[in-house]
Amino acid sequence: MPIRIPDDLPARRVLEAEGVMVMDSSRAARQDIRPLQIGLLNLMPNKERTETQFARLIGASPLQVDLTLVRITDHRSKNTAEDYLDTFYQTWESVRDRKFDGFIVTGAPIANIPFEEVKYWSEMVEIMNWTQTNVHHTMFICWGAQAALYHFHNARRYRMAEKAFGVFRHKVVDPRSPYLRGFSDDLAVPVSRYNDIARDSLSPDLRILIDSDEIGICMLDDPTHRAVHMLNHLEYDNRSLADEFDRDRAAGLETAPPINLYPDDDPSREPENRWRSHGHLLFQNWINEIYQTTPYDLADIGR
């Protein structure tokens, strides 16, 4: 089944060109089923690229999904035009009375700022608390995961000696998890972060699902808060890390090339995507688990 997104959203053309099934609003209205309601709180500066990455994975589901793009209410983006946001995004304030089967909170490029000093931290706290009453299951990613682990579990974040940047091997710790069905025993995962979570600060309510001896914890299950926390980026496309490297170099930063991304470690060659299948598996498993467990009546979510 297709994903339903706004008819004029630029991501639509990209997805259709890739063969992802996209449904227009009139066709969706004629189908006598309840689509899954999934919200995407997009905190990344390049909104269009990020929404395309997530829509690509969500749209591969055999279920009909209505995707709602959400933004922080009072934060003005420096990289995305306000008319674009006004056209395709809703503020969290405008959706706070709604119920969602699934909700995704992305990363944000504010790794060096203490949580309480983030301009929109008070709204983030409201949103995280709101997921406990208005969302059946939430996926927190990268900075979003660090923020949720800090808020819900007081997990300690610390600065690593150097930025973790590249594609690293990880191992599946709990193959019985419904979110990891079909996963290989080990897998390649794109990583781009300065911080890690101290293992000794993790609550016993959390269960590590994917881990790496080299680069640290990748994914945790948080059943108490009906959430999973993904610290890395299986949603990335093959150019995400490469473009970040190019931007850093253009800005005069001495960023080293991302590890294990380019063939023969040659930045002049096109990056290879060695995680695409696991990205699709993760989101299909997540959506399937939501479908199997969410109430049919949206009003019952959170009760």
Results as ranks from 00 to 15, higher is better:
4 R>C: 07
4 R>K: 13
4 R>Q: 10
5 I>Q: 02
6 P>Q: 10
9 L>I: 11
10 P>L: 09
19 G>P: 07
23 M>T: 08
35 P>S: 13
41 L>M: 11
43 L>F: 05
49 R>I: 12
50 T>F: 05
50 T>N: 02
58 I>K: 06
60 A>C: 14
60 A>V: 03
60 A>N: 07
62 P>I: 14
62 P>G: 08
62 P>C: 09
63 L>I: 14
67 L>H: 03
76 R>C: 03
84 Y>V: 13
84 Y>I: 12
85 L>T: 07
88 F>L: 09
89 Y>P: 02
93 E>M: 13
93 E>F: 12
95 V>W: 07
97 D>M: 13
100 F>S: 03
110 I>L: 15
110 I>T: 08
112 N>H: 14
123 E>D: 04
125 V>T: 14
127 I>D: 01
127 I>Q: 01
131 T>C: 05
131 T>L: 08
132 Q>V: 04
135 V>Y: 06
137 H>P: 00
138 T>G: 05
139 M>Q: 03
141 I>C: 01
141 I>M: 05
143 W>T: 00
144 G>L: 11
146 Q>S: 04
150 Y>P: 00
151 H>S: 09
154 N>L: 12
156 R>P: 00
160 M>T: 06
163 K>N: 05
165 F>V: 04
169 R>Q: 10
169 R>Y: 01
171 K>S: 11
174 D>R: 15
176 R>C: 02
177 S>H: 09
180 L>K: 06
180 L>G: 00
182 G>T: 07
190 P>S: 12
193 R>A: 11
196 D>W: 01
198 A>K: 13
199 R>Q: 07
201 S>N: 01
203 S>V: 07
203 S>M: 06
211 D>I: 08
212 S>A: 05
213 D>Y: 03
221 D>S: 13
223 P>H: 05
225 H>N: 12
227 A>R: 07
230 M>H: 08
233 H>T: 14
235 E>Q: 11
236 Y>I: 14
238 N>Y: 10
238 N>A: 15
240 S>D: 04
243 D>F: 07
246 D>M: 13
247 R>T: 05
250 A>D: 12
256 A>P: 09
257 P>Y: 03
257 P>H: 04
260 N>G: 09
265 D>K: 15
268 S>N: 10
268 S>A: 14
268 S>K: 07
270 E>Q: 12
277 S>H: 12
282 L>I: 05
284 Q>G: 02
286 W>H: 05
286 W>M: 06
290 I>E: 01
302 G>N: 04
